[in-house]
């Protein structure tokens, strides 16, 4: 946990902890799937910088290291063989936490301060406050947070917050040999992405898009896709924080508090109106009515 960063939002917080004292621009990763060569240098760099345990590879019939992200494996290159208009396409995408502007994990988390969003947009898990309930995995539209069986806590990509806060780029970015990864302010990365998308469109890839889903307020990972088919890259087309998560946090919670208070007030009102129901035989003798 980086104490020097301003916390913008904090999970299960009563009043919030945003002071507004330190300001910083939103940062973002830029991922160009069209120039990724699938070398997995970013995977290795992530494991190394974050001191994560080695995870046994699982062969799933492609070059992909694991079927899904893992509590000990926060950066995964997904390999997809996709037929497009009769042509074979080998699609690769770097999968990790998307660092949403409106994070579903943070909304769902019941432990105060276990998930925070820093002023610069990075969403981080504080394992010392995490209770390992897994609600964040329910709230995340990208299925990113994973349960660490050994620690009993949730774990995911931190966007190398410990590097970013001292002015370094994330480990994955530093390791990339093709320049398909880049890091900077969100504004700059979106501009870079738009330029790249225009270049792709001019070169025959008319469907090229920049994936920055607005349903979660945009993400601090912007991804250039050659085809406007996010599902081919195992990305949700229009991710949102689930309606059920919203219902339970924004509707049921206040409703429950009001209902409990109303029940208590109701009993007092009833007692004030009708008093105790005492048998006629006991009505003149207060002591026998108490019943203890």
């Amino acid at each position: 946990m980086a104490q020097t960063l301003e916390i913008k939002r904090s999970s299960a917080s009563m009043w919030g902890s945003h002071t507004g004292i330190r300001t910083s621009p939103t940062v973002a990763k830029y991922i160009d799937t069209t120039t990724c060569i699938g070398c997995k240098a970013c995977e290795a760099a992530c494991q190394e910088w974050n001191d994560l345990r080695r995870v046994p590879h699982q062969q799933i019939g492609t070059y992909q290291t694991l079927p899904e992200l893992h509590a000990d494996f926060w950066n995964l290159i997904r390999f997809k063989e996709q037929e497009v208009n009769g042509d074979f396409n080998w699609l690769m995408r770097k999968d990790q936490c998307m660092h949403c502007a409106d994070p579903g994990c943070l909304a769902a988390c019941p432990a105060p301060g276990a998930i925070v969003q820093y002023e610069n947009g990075i969403v981080d898990v504080n394992q010392d406050k995490c209770i390992g309930c897994g609600y964040c995995a329910t709230g995340c539209p990208f299925d990113v947070p994973k349960f660490h069986a050994k620690g009993g806590k949730m774990a995911k990509c931190t966007l190398c917050v410990d590097r970013v806060e001292v002015g370094l780029e994330p480990a994955c970015i530093k390791a990339c040999p093709t320049g398909c990864l880049n890091f900077g302010t969100k504004e700059d990365m979106v501009a870079l992405g738009n330029t790249r998308v225009k270049a792709l469109q001019a070169n025959g890839f008319k469907d090229a898009v920049l994936y920055d889903p607005q349903g979660v307020g945009g993400t601090s990972v912007v991804t250039v896709l050659k085809y406007d088919k996010p599902e081919w890259y195992k990305l949700p087309a229009d991710p949102h924080v689930g309606l059920l998560v919203r219902a339970w946090k924004n509707v049921l919670r206040p409703l429950g508090v009001v209902a409990a208070a109303a029940a208590v007030i109701g009993t007092f009102a009833h007692f004030a109106t009708y008093g105790p129901k005492v048998p006629p035989e006991d009505r003149d003798d207060a002591s026998s009515g108490s019943g203890r």
């Binding site: 029940a263 009833h270 007692f271 105790p276 129901k277 005492v278």
Partner: peptide, 18 residues
């Protein structure tokens, strides 16, 4: 929770001797 509040109320204050 609402049910339990009523249950405790009826079993104690509202109906002495219960």
């Amino acid at each position: 929770m609402v049910g339990i509040v009523m249950h405790i109320y009826l079993g104690t204050t509202a109906e002495p001797g219960t």
